[in-house]
Design a binder for these strands. Structure first.
Length: 537
RNA sequence: GCCCUCGUAGCUCAGGGGAUAGAGCAUUGGCCUCCGGAGCCAUGUGCGCAGGUUCGAAUCCUGCCGAGGGCGCCA
């Protein structure tokens, strides 16, 4: 790694100069400003004070030392600003980046073994089986699937899981609503009044009992949700049924396990969890005075089950569930699990805008935008890319008109267009029988144009971006990187003709390799987001 | 009242303690005999407020202001 070369050269220089105390770590960063080189170290500023040096003076001495025997791959070392030491890499080194990208190809580019096969279970969407998925489920769906892709790319063994709340009060209300509609009656108080209920009721067979209607409704809803998710390329490994926890007595076992840990008590005819002992701000009821479980109890049993199958649990919940995190972690800790191995990511709300106005959602009046509608309106690629372009920590404003438009301000088209252009160059080269071409036949040292080097620098960063987005569970970093790479591709396309226009055959050959490397980057990044890379637009 | 997330350009958003805070769109002006002009280049404006930590803060800490969400024996 070039960064190791740089840090060890800094370390050697510091030792040669007899600087004490020596710094424990040497950090490098990639300056935002290209004029500051490829890598920069602040080590002189960090070390100077304790070692009794002036920062700039120390930086100058270090630079002299390194310049006296410049390591391979480094073109220059300079001092700048208050004492930064800036390293510029040689084009030769960047050409090795190209070789590595081509060697790894789309299937391996950016992949690492950070996860070392650790089993991670990602639970997301988990919508109630009482109706179609709506716009509110979309962000968590795209996000969850993308971090699943990313964690797979960095070496985790990933399971995608959907928890189905197929029992309890809401399900009973749903079944009653279907039956009422079937009989031509009004839905009961607090029932489900959406238009789809009417529609589904007509499809439901006659003469079902409440239990049968519940089961039919649940299956119908699950199937509807599964199909919608498939439209945007999301396929779950596991649909976990809440009622199966009743059948297997897992809920009672969980309560007993909590009792054995003396984490429960009885009060006012109910059974409580001493969650305050584990960091929650209130104790929580497990079994109500009427003998029913609260929502927490089956969910605790469910998480206990997941811990028996996985090393690390990730839950993706909507903003309205954040208050639930502390009690779930408390329940897991009480059961003897490490709450650190349960990560809950909260996705903030999305405001939909269409025609310049906010689209108001009112579940009560059955006015919801179904996820299916969004996908049909703007397509699966735009749906995923737009939701993933922004950090889920922030409220998002989602402009449906923009996402649907096939114009340049639509970022998904901008990125996909970059890919289509590269493919069209390759297609032309294929017609002329110039491509494919083994990379050994190309003279990469001809790639010296600023646009070409920009592309190589972007490609070099990909593995780091993937790792960072995995660590922070932040797929938007991939989306941002893709947009930057696309910018470099368009610039290259504009300024560096690959075929014709007086370009020598030798340069054409070298540039064709770069085209394939850039294409590899675009496809690899888009794959992590679950967005396609079309050959033409 | 308490808890969570957020507040960056006219708009939508990036910004892993560093240098002159970045993209895209919008504005204005350039660039098409040429691999797809669905593009490229140039162009002004900004870190909610006040303290603190640090050689250095948009970033970390505290308080305040503002936005959204949550504080049930609902799910």
């Amino acid at each position: 790694m070039i960064t190791t070369t740089i840090t060890s050269s800094l370390r050697d220089a510091l030792e040669d100069l007899g600087v004490t105390p020596q710094p424990t770590v040497i950090n490098l960063e990639q300056p935002a400003n290209k004029g500051h080189g490829d890598w920069s170290s602040n080590i002189a500023m960090v070390t100077a004070k304790n070692a009794g040096w002036a920062p700039r003076e120390l930086a100058t001495e270090i630079t002299k030392k390194i310049n006296s025997a410049l390591p391979e791959g480094i073109e220059s070392v300079t001092v700048a600003g208050p004492g930064f030491i800036n390293f510029t890499l040689s084009p030769l080194w960047l050409h090795n980046v190209l070789l590595r990208v081509l060697e790894q190809g789309i299937t391996q580019f950016g992949q690492t073994d950070l996860g070392q096969g650790k089993k991670v279970n990602i639970e997301f969407v988990s919508a109630n089986p009482t109706g179609p998925l709506h716009a509110g489920h979309a962000r968590g769906a795209c996000y969850g699937d993308s971090i699943a892709n990313i964690l797979q790319a960095v070496g985790f063994d990933v399971e995608r899981e959907f928890y189905v709340n197929d029992r309890g009060l809401q399900m009973n209300l749903f079944a009653d609503s279907l039956l009422a509609r079937k009989a031509g009656d009004q839905v009961p108080e607090n029932g489900y009044g959406g238009a789809y209920v009417e529609e589904w009721a007509q499809k439901m067979p006659d003469g079902l009992s409440q239990e049968e209607a519940l089961s039919w409704g649940c299956e119908h809803a699950k199937e509807d949700q599964r199909k919608t998710l498939e439209m945007i390329g999301i396929v779950f490994d596991m649909w976990f049924s809440e009622s199966s926890l009743v059948d297997s007595d897992a809920i009672d076992h969980t309560i007993r396990a909590l009792e054995e840990k003396e984490a429960t008590y009885e009060k006012d005819g109910a059974k409580w969890l001493k969650s305050t002992d584990y960091g929650d701000d209130k104790d929580r009821v497990l079994v109500k005075s009427d003998g029913e479980y609260t929502y927490l109890t089956p969910d605790a049993a469910y998480h206990r089950d997941k811990f028996s199958r996985s090393d690390w649990l990730i839950n993706i919940w909507g903003a309205d569930h954040h208050g639930y995190i502390a009690r779930m972690k408390a329940a897991m800790e009480a059961l003897g699990h490490d709450p650190e191995q349960l990560t809950v990511t909260i996705t903030q709300l999305v405001k939909l805008v269409r025609g310049g106005h906010e689209v108001r959602l009112s579940k009560r009046h059955g006015e919801v935008i179904e996820l299916r509608e969004i996908v049909e309106e703007i397509g699966p690629d735009a749906t995923r890319f737009m939701y993933l372009l922004q950090s889920v920590d922030t409220k998002q404003t989602f402009d449906l008109d923009l996402a649907a438009s096939k114009v340049m301000e639509n970022p998904v088209f901008y990125v996909q267009m970059a890919h289509a252009r590269l493919r069209s160059i390759q297609a032309k080269a294929e017609t002329l029988e110039m491509w494919p071409l083994p990379v050994d036949n190309a003279n990469l040292s001809l790639l010296t144009h600023q646009r070409e080097l920009d592309l190589l620098r972007d490609l070099y960063n990909f593995a780091d971006v993937v790792q960072l987005s995995a660590r922070e569970l932040a797929p938007h970093k991939i989306a941002i990187w893709l947009r930057e790479l696309a910018t470099s591709v368009h610039g290259f396309y504009h300024d560096c003709y690959v075929i014709g226009d007086g370009v020598s055959q030798e340069l054409t050959n070298a540039r064709l390799q770069l085209v394939e490397a850039a294409r590899t980057g675009l496809v690899s990044g888009l794959n992590l987001l679950g967005v396609s890379a079309p050959n033409s637009m």
